[in-house]
Amino acid sequence: MSAQAVATEPESDIVIDVEGLTKSFGGPPVVKNLTMQVHKGLIYGFLGPNGSGKTTTLRMLCGLLTPDSGRGTCLGYDIRTQTADIKRHVGYMTQRFSLYQDLSIRENLEFVARIYNLDHPRQAAQDAIVRLGLENRADQLAGDLSGGWKQRLALGACILPQPELLLLDEPTAGVDPKARRDFWDEIHKLAHEGLTVLVSTHYMDEAERCHEITYIAYGEILAHGSVAQVVADAHLSTYTVTGPDLSDLAEYLKTLDGVDMVAPFGVELHVSGRDGAKLDTATATLRAEGPQVWTQGEPTLEDVFIDLMSKTKDNYA
């Protein structure tokens, strides 16, 4: 669906276009030879474990970090030389709450409105407060807000100057499910209005709400495409196992050749292998004799990511 939409879109609709970005902070590179393109109006998910280079990449895109090598554009502006232009058109929401805790919600929003020289900063801030549903808390200090409200406020501040691109760095970390859902509804609404959103996250359910995803680990892109594409490209065969003694079974399965990943999901066990035939052979006796029930299943995105993770870990071990 979205993958096809991407394919038919003309070149000029590319909002982020970077090639070979590399960045290190003295040690080994945090981001290695990263190449990516993001199309206009899409919600682009940026996934990966902690320390995989997500934040560094976002910072390079909005001009907060200078890449060691590589080149590219963001909204058509060069990420090395035109950072001032990028900053005028990009809204960047940091991972850590970075509005002023000792200013009220209203004061924070008015500050942003004045920085971007909006015509009527007070009115713009008031409109944002109403839109965010923060009327009752407008004069509360930002530092006193709960996690969910802080994140809403941060998003509100980001979109106040009407950016064309939103960069959100783990915006829903530590936020309850209801607030997360509201947040994603808002993001979809914004994307529908034409805003491009690049969002980094840990959560698989959030990844499935993105039009396109990229999985990055150790600074390298391991998978890319729509969710369906990524799952299909992984070529994983998966069985879902139910029944008694699953933990003992899991320990045993891990020793079998042909079984690449065993992961418990509640009362189920997901057993996956990269080579379907090998997996079938290895588990043939178990499947025939029980006592557990084996059913052929579709791998989930999480299965794919855990597999990708273990694969890279092997490469680095």
């Binding site: 990009v90 940091t94 850590r96 942003v112 971007y116």
Partner: peptide, 8 residues
């Protein structure tokens, strides 16, 4: 500072 620097 991170937010401030990301602003124009």
């Amino acid at each position: 500072m991170e937010s401030l620097l990301a602003m124009p």
